[in-house]
Design a protein around this nucleic acid. Structure first.
Lengths: 152, 152
DNA sequence: GTTGAAACCGGTTGTCT
DNA sequence: AGACAACCGGTTTCAAC
């Protein structure tokens, strides 16, 4: 499926504010409501739009701490990757987990209430994994930017 | 403002799927539509819900590459932080930027079409900054997990 | 792709308990 | 705070152009 500039404009509006009505988007792209509605359905069905979510305020919910951690796995054990991937997927504190190039294997973004809570999480959920060889934690001191918007 | 378990349950539903109707949420938390509606408005006004967005499929939009980069600033120059913060905020390719503890200063999450496009971005937008002393890039080879949902 | 009409559904408001 | 009824607005589908 090929996207034209109108589709891209619609996606851009929706990733900034999913509450816009079809009417408002229609006005912005100079179309009537019907074709805009059809395009949005099409973009959803084709998978360009994955889902609609509410973004919550982390700090207000007590999750003041963000930690990025670098994890190196024990690559002697061939089950290590599957084990680690499965474990991480189950942990709600882990918001992002990627396999990266370079000197370590994984980069994780973890949130916790405070340093103490992070330490408990680290001890009980990460360091106990057989697959884990080494972990370095980097604490976020200040968030300069954080967006889910993909440049279009 | 204090949240009870019903409020938390509502937030949890909405951060998973913002398209749920008040009616559906009401059924899930065993209330009628009106109080659920009031609670959601209250949670929005109090800032627990920051916004509603559509999450797009990065890869379908051509942004196949995710790069995390560690940036060290020239701390001799006292304008460095302001300059770097301002620059990063303007760059749409930078989805996340945090000041971190440890051996480097910033951790950035950047997306690009491919390695070539990343290199162009890097050369033209990051390495030219006076404030930047050193950058290490880590390419994401596989995304194991990526969510915006805060554990509640 | 546009327009207009109609059915539908959820959000919204006011009122009552 | 919850339930109920009435109203309003947007969405959705359809037909005609």
């Amino acid at each position: 499926m090929a996207l034209d500039t109108t589709d891209l404009s619609i996606l851009n509006k929706l990733q900034a504010n999913a509450q816009l009505t079809t009417k408002e988007i229609a006005a912005a792209v100079n179309l009537s409501v019907t074709p805009v509605h059809d395009r949005i359905r099409k973009l959803e069905r084709a998978g360009y739009i994955e889902r609609y979510v509410a973004l919550l305020n982390r700090k207000k919910l007590g999750k003041s701490l963000v930690v990025y951690c670098n994890v190196t796995l024990d690559k002697q054990r061939k089950e290590s990757f599957e084990e680690f991937n499965a474990a991480v997927s189950r942990l709600p504190e882990v918001l992002e987990c990627s396999v990266v190039s370079g000197s370590f294997d994984y980069l994780l973004k973890v949130i916790a209430n405070d340093v103490e809570a992070y330490n408990a999480f680290y001890q009980q959920n990460l360091s106990v994994l057989q697959s884990v060889l080494h972990i370095s934690s980097f604490f976020v001191m200040s968030e300069v930017k954080s967006t889910t918007e993909i440049p279009i």
